[in-house]
């Protein structure tokens, strides 16, 4: 129990640190939000007026403390660019990212584990090479290219799937595939290597001696052992996806967290940027904790020791 509390405190510290860091960095780097907002029609006067109205002329520590005070009350400020409360923008964008992540992760993990198992069982034969090739492509080809290629193939040439996300489930398939391919590749490789390690284990002999066919022995006994590191990987992948897949969301027109963060960076929209970074830090911290906890829960050898 105290371990959980300790982890919780750790997360809070991380979040505070992140807040401070992003706050300072944003104000040091070149690029002033008023200029960006006013764009081509800026004049010295209008920039000054806008800066004042944004409260950016106050001294740094004052700005930070104001922000902190508000953040504790749940008010993350208002986006300069989009003129809406940051928290509501994030909460509106998150469900899209969540949907994308859910579909993406399912695809990645199901395909990844299947591929890994087949690869291990038929190792060094055709199915293995086939799946390893596909995994390699997934890991090495950048998401942007994968996304464009899938669009070209599935929409342009074969007219099978819609071009962009329009709210329907069907239109989420391509983005999920594009995003998931990379994760699938990692999962497949880790599953394959993990399972192959187990293939020499004596307990597989025991299982066969008990009457299990080789294939069933590998699946029920071998996989159970090999899957541990894969689950940790999956938990980490999940938190990565949840922080927003910028490129996938941009290409397919999904208004998720990644797109929001990108817009915030480009427009130096400080409240929005601070908000999204904070949210991302939270998601990743929690994801890491979940990964650790899952690992401990699943491996009985770790459990009884603690």
């Amino acid at each position: 129990m105290s371990a959980v509390i300790r982890r919780g405190l750790g997360v809070i510290l991380v979040l505070l640190g992140v807040m401070l860091l992003i706050f300072v960095v944003l104000r040091i780097i070149p690029g002033d939000p008023a200029s960006v907002l006013l764009n081509e029609h800026a004049s010295e006067d209008s920039i000054r007026r806008l800066t004042e109205s944004m409260g950016l002329d106050k001294p740094l520590p004052v700005q930070f403390l104001d922000y902190l005070k508000n953040a504790l009350r749940g008010d993350l400020g208002q986006s300069y660019y989009m003129r809406k409360p940051v928290l509501s923008l994030i909460l509106t964008a998150f469900p899209y990212t969540l949907k994308l992540t859910a579909l993406s992760a399912s695809f990645a993990w199901i395909f990844g584990i299947l591929a890994g198992v087949v690869s291990a069982v038929y190792h060094d034969r055709l199915p293995d090479h086939l799946f390893r090739g596909i995994s390699l492509l997934g890991i090495s080809v950048p998401v942007f290219m994968v996304a464009l290629f899938l669009q070209y193939l599935m929409y342009f040439r074969l007219s099978l799937l819609p071009l962009m996300y329009d709210g329907s489930f069907v239109s989420m398939i391509l983005p999920a595939a594009a995003l998931g391919w990379n994760s699938a590749g990692s999962v497949a490789r880790l599953t394959r290597s993990g399972l192959m390690e187990q293939l020499d284990s004596p307990y597989l002999d025991t299982a066969r001696a008990k009457g299990l066919s080789t294939k069933k022995a590998i699946l029920f006994h071998g996989l159970r052992n090999a899957i541990l590191p894969v689950i940790t990987l999956m938990a980490l992948q999940l938190s990565g996806m949840l922080s927003g897949a910028v490129i996938t969301e941009s290409v397919f027109g999904i208004s998720g967290l990644g797109k929001l963060a990108l817009t915030a960076v480009q427009t130096r929209d400080m409240p929005l940027l601070q908000g999204t970074v904070l949210f991302t830090a939270l998601v990743i911290s929690v994801g890491n904790i979940i990964a650790d906890v899952t690992n401990t829960l699943l491996d009985p050898r770790l459990r009884t020791k603690s």
Binding site: S201, P202, Y203, D205, T206, H221, R224, N225, P300
Partner: peptide
């Protein structure tokens, strides 16, 4: 030790 499945 290795002939028994450590996870069961």
């Amino acid at each position: 030790m290795t002939s028994l499945n450590p996870m069961m």
